[in-house]
Design a binder for these strands. Structure first.
Lengths: 216, 216
DNA sequence: TAAAAAGTTTAGACTTGTCTAAAAAAATAA
DNA sequence: TTATTTTTTTAGACAAGTCTAAACTTTTTA
């Protein structure tokens, strides 16, 4: 098995890979709240284990083996988040830190039984897909509300920002997963948007519109 | 918070304290599968943190602060074991290793909610008491079946040996928690015992009789 | 396209927790 | 009660993962 530190590096590299093909040392350092020099050391270890492709100064990509491990950790993280919200009734902005610890529990059998216990959920409380035991999941397309035009609509299906502050704001505005929204107006001046959500109109900034995702 | 290693030392010292008031360096080393020299190093650290009372060559006892931490870890361990057996349907001999990892998840709120989710169980799957959030639990008296005389009876309520091999043996013999047993005969030669359990008679060795506990 | 800036790696050090080997203390035995 | 054995501690070393400071690449800018 891999160490806790190795698992966290692989997970970070996976997440960063979704935005950039090659992930840089500094990006990883920022994500893990560590220093670039520490990252370089770890990249060498991960490359020795054939979990990443690494060439000095060129950034890294995950190998198939590395991606498999990353996806397994992400599966565990999201299943535990689902458990915390659905079974223990935590709020969606409270579960990330706990799941950061729980994702490192090693037993595969445990996580498969947890999956079954919850009846094989497809998404975590933030709308992110939960990989199956082989690491597969549907890469359904989401886009930010900011990409919509007036009179277009969609169903809230995910968030780009997972910070408690953002999630709490959404909760308060009733902008939660599954809600149907329609853009009724876009303000020229600041590109903020007015949404129709159920019976009410909600005014959101462009910042929020960029971080709130809908299914197409 | 304390490190994983510190938590494991405190837990071991707590368990060993149940048999001996002062716990020796070698006992701890054996329990943690480490060397006496490593134990000495850690004992200094724990003493510096005022979690144990330590005088060179004299063995250790837990301070109130150390015992509180130990009991909290044991609470977490036993609640997770209960979860694994009752909710995920693992067998009682399969859960120890998983709980060894899960007991280090730090959130107190999480464990309190888990406790509530399972309706505040009083004992783990092996019959060991689950401390409440303040570390309190009823120290009800158990004694080994080996202490019984012919025609005396009791209810199986715990085990002294938690090894999978022993637990699997008990499971196969239907000697599980809650079963009512009565001693029908004690063989002079080897002190093995014949028990009446429900409709059948079961012959157990003295070794087993010493490790299987009943409520008085 | 040369100089400056930004990003990355190396070198050497530190912490945690572990180890072996040797020294010291305590317990046991003759 | 001295000698032997057992237990414990100390000394010094090591691996993992991190850090700072300095050196080296790459990218950007003028």
């Amino acid at each position: 098995m891999n160490t806790l530190a190795e698992e966290n590096y692989l997970k970070s590299i996976y997440h960063l890979s979704l935005n950039d093909v090659n992930v840089s040392t500094n990006q990883i350092a920022a994500a893990l709240n560590t220093k670039a020099a520490s990252v370089t050391d770890m990249l060498k270890k991960l490359a020795d284990k054939a979990l990443i492709n690494y060439a000095k100064y060129q950034g890294v990509t995950l190998t198939a083996a590395g991606e498999k491990i990353a996806l397994h950790i992400i599966r565990k993280h999201r299943l535990w988040e689902y458990f915390l919200v659905e079974k223990l009734h935590f709020k969606w902005d409270e579960v990330h830190e706990m799941a950061e610890e729980m994702e490192h529990i090693s037993s595969i059998e445990l996580i498969d039984r947890l999956d079954k216990f919850m009846d094989y959920p497809k998404h975590d409380p933030h709308g992110d897909p939960i990989p199956d035991r082989n690491g597969n999941f549907k890469k359904y397309e989401l886009k930010p509300i900011a990409a919509l035009n007036v009179n277009e609509n969609g169903i809230i299906s995910g968030v780009r920002d997972h910070s408690p502050a953002f999630l709490q704001y959404l909760e308060k505005q009733q902008l939660t997963i599954g809600k149907k929204i329609k853009v009724t107006e876009i303000i020229d001046y600041d590109l903020s948007m007015i949404l129709q959500v159920e019976q009410t109109e909600i005014h959101i900034s462009r910042e929020v519109a960029k971080n709130l995702l809908i299914a197409i």
